[in-house]
Amino acid sequence: MDTRIQDIVLENSDEIKSEWLNEVEKTHRTDDLPNISTELYNSTNKDFVDVIFLCVQNRGSTQELQEFSERLIKLGWPLSYLTIGIQSFRRVTVNFLLKDVDKQVEKSYFVQIVQEVDLWIDPIINYLVNEYSGSWENTFSLQKLALKELSAPLIPVMEGITVMPLIGTIDTDRAKLIMENLLDGVIENRAEVVLIDITGVPVVDTMVAHHIIQAAEAVRLIGAKCILVGIRPEIAQTIVNLGIDLSKFPTKSSLSKGFQSALEFTNRKIIHTQGDSLDVEQIIDSLGKE
């Protein structure tokens, strides 16, 4: 490394900072940072360029970047702000080092300047990209875990009867999760009947039906009964057209009808007393509010 170039940059840091701030201001677009005030934007720019110069002073050390990058990640600043700022610093610094040099500057000297600046800038870019990537991966993992927990819930509604409401598309990974939650839930809740509600499943094709049939068969093998509910007319038509055989287990058009069947399978029934006009839908609603 050529310490002379580093010394020139550090000795003229105020001028380079001023030029960099002007350069960044020119490229600033409010639609890129819609929730950032002008005051916060300007103060962050000053903090950013100070951190860059600390990295230059320490010859590319990224230790000073940690606190600054963590703060920006928590506040939701985009990675593009940092990469544009770093590239602007590279451009401003190289231009500053060459502005007082004879136009006939030797190629070797130009290359030396660019290489020296790259030695400071590249570690900063690599560090920031890695920090943001790590943050995105962590966020994605947490969201995936949360969605996983919600994608196949098994809800006990009363002794011996549980409901699994399914919403959205069903792919192979989700089908595996449905199977695991279904079997674990049946055993844990000692369920005799499971209602699989597909009201929220937009499309039931051969693959989806195959996964549901597999789940129902697995439930049967551990001693429980499975009822498929929420079959809309268009879904019923699709199932018939595709030649899918669902005859091995009961199907119902709505959750309320499925619940009535579940009561019959568990040797129970709803008895209306005098003056009691509650229907099955109201009973199911009341169970959800308890």
Rank of each mutant, 00 (worst) to 15 (best):
R90I: 05
V114P: 07
L98N: 07
F96H: 05
V114E: 14
Q115P: 09
K107V: 13
Q115L: 14
Q112R: 14
T83W: 05
Y109D: 03
F89E: 01
T93S: 00
R91D: 08
Q112I: 07
V114N: 14
F89M: 07
R90Y: 04
R90C: 05
V94T: 08
F89G: 02
V94Y: 01
L82D: 07
V92Q: 08
R91E: 08
L72Q: 09
F89K: 07
I84R: 11
R90T: 03
V111M: 15
L75Y: 12
R91V: 06
S108G: 12
L82Y: 12
D100A: 07
I84Y: 00
V101N: 04
V114T: 15
Q104V: 08
S88A: 01
I84F: 09
Q104M: 11
G85K: 04
D102Y: 12
V117T: 03
D102F: 04
P78I: 07
N95F: 12
N95D: 13
V111A: 15
G85L: 03
S108L: 14
K99S: 05
S108F: 10
V114R: 13
Q104C: 11
R90G: 01
I73G: 09
L82T: 00
I73V: 11
S108T: 14
V101H: 07
L98F: 03
L98E: 04
L72R: 10
I84K: 07
K103C: 02
I84D: 12
R91L: 04
W77C: 02
I73P: 08
Q115V: 03
F89D: 06
V111E: 15
Y109C: 05
I73N: 12
